[in-house]
Design a protein around this nucleic acid. Sequence first.
DNA 1: TTGAAAGCGCTAACAT
DNA 2: ATGTTAGCGCTTTCAA
Lengths: 356, 356
Amino acid sequence: MHLNHMWNQLHTRRWITLITIKDVAQLAGVSKATVSRVLNNSGYVNEATRQKVEVVMKEHQYIPSASAVSLSRQETSTIGVLVPEIDNMFYGDMLHGITEVADQKELSLIFFDTQDNGEKEARALRTLSQQRVRGLILAPAVDYSNDAMASNLRKQLNALNIPLVIVDRDSDNMPWDGVFYENYQSSYQAAIELYKAGNRRLGVITGDLKLKIGRDRLEGFRQGVLDCGLNLREEDIFEGDFLTPRAYELSKAMFHSGDWPQAIYTSNNSTSLGFLKATHECGIEIGRDIAVIGNDRIAILDMLGIPFSCVYRDNHEMGRVALRMLLERIENPDRPRNIYMIPYSVQLSGSERITK
Amino acid sequence: MHLNHMWNQLHTRRWITLITIKDVAQLAGVSKATVSRVLNNSGYVNEATRQKVEVVMKEHQYIPSASAVSLSRQETSTIGVLVPEIDNMFYGDMLHGITEVADQKELSLIFFDTQDNGEKEARALRTLSQQRVRGLILAPAVDYSNDAMASNLRKQLNALNIPLVIVDRDSDNMPWDGVFYENYQSSYQAAIELYKAGNRRLGVITGDLKLKIGRDRLEGFRQGVLDCGLNLREEDIFEGDFLTPRAYELSKAMFHSGDWPQAIYTSNNSTSLGFLKATHECGIEIGRDIAVIGNDRIAILDMLGIPFSCVYRDNHEMGRVALRMLLERIENPDRPRNIYMIPYSVQLSGSERITK
DNA sequence: TTGAAAGCGCTAACAT
DNA sequence: ATGTTAGCGCTTTCAA
């Protein structure tokens, strides 16, 4: 039997024959059940026996097979994580937060980058389902904003019937737990801060308004402006898409037009970058020619000592909360839907003020 | 039997009873073997039978269990990935590259963030071994530079006996495949570029010299300087650690001293940031008071239109190459050790030049 | 072209 | 305190 193993190994060159529970049992002169008991610290086992078994395990470097355990126990200890683009800092931070609690709970993560693509997302979900993950953390792909896609996704998630928490991108009609950011409130606050800094004509470069997150940020800001007793002119609303190139074009056009708001709210980090690039290129000086407050912190600007005011959230925390929430859902599948709103912080560093 | 399943589900509230191959077989009126055949497109199966089975699978949303398949086939289709800190852009980019080819090869990734901590790394490796991953991509934790740690790691990796490729951080006495960056050559080139730009007194903020990667970059630069007929003064070598705070302190001290090189080579992106922050804070103007060329591209500076010259590598490519190399190793375990050096590129944008 | 049966490595009653 | 046994869901000979 063992020889047979060895032969296979040599023959297929694929198999590093690891020692199995059966081998350990034989070597220690006990039954598999006993080995299993010491392995899992379950049931009764004589101290002497335990020692014996443990010695054998150490000596032969016994490493139990996760597949076998899962199959037998009918449950894995892995969590699936899907993000749209891991090379975006935001998701890197979030993933970091997730790994922190995964590590402490001894969970493994199966990771997918959906590349903002609904089909890859669907495939990934299928795979995750085969893996029988215990739960799922999903930052939906962007075409989630498309109705048909959203409905497909909803169907698929329903069919999967796996404990799930959605992060970052909210949407209507999604019955699952979620961790989102205070988009409306933070944007509202951005308006207030700009007002308090003395600005009276406020404008905004929006995100993708097909996304709820984009609409929320616009509406929060708009309401903030209104509540300051000002009004947000239509021509001071620049409709962007959360991406740098468009924000850059919009800003450039704005500066070329020769007429622009005293202060601008940029809807996310990419938008802020596009805006900053344009100011740079057009010789516009922040604090003199225009004020700005962004959504999302851009750590690198802090590092460089470039003042940039913002409303922002703790991305690590978002990841941590998501996984904790998922674990609670797994513990208690019947509790009602749970939504956690990550609070926002405000960081003022001068760019929200104009001195002319 | 099925009823029994249902009962368990309700009772434990844990089990979403998925349909198994046995159920499919019964429903389709064939044997498990036949279902397996259509599932894997293996062996002979009558077209009519295939249809029948496929219909049942669709209708009942049959999803095979990966654990069962792995256990039976004695092999998984997952790859382990370990990085020291995923919220560092570099590793985010690399992971993205890895996911690209994983996706096209239908491989799943189990992901670990070792937090630059040798113990977490060791634990992760153990887990990965339980998961019986097909192979491993490892960007070693930094305390890898410590001899004892390195030796432990080497032992553990040896014991694991899993196909492996090391990325980013090279070290001596590691017999595994690796994907590294042309540290020496790129640093050499940095010196040349600074010379060509007219600078004659060159300096460097080094990385962690306990790391091979740190020493290589220093030595490459030093040789470049020598080959330009200049010499690198000891006082123009500032010993950093690849992290922003120290680079910042060193730069500040340098500027406060009132005497500094015409041009500086910063050994990685974090170092560059610390340096830039200091120039900013000390009122030093790049191009007038000092020139700089960095190792690593800082995408955000490009976006902002801030000129910053650098030698750099394609991080996505690093990830792609790593996984491809791993797959080759898995195919052919006996081929000799394979090392791939990611080439460097040069991007000049003016900061390497001084106009005084 | 299909089915029966053994086995993958482990767990969990149930016996003893 | 320990062993026996029957699975877990799938693959893969071997027969038919």
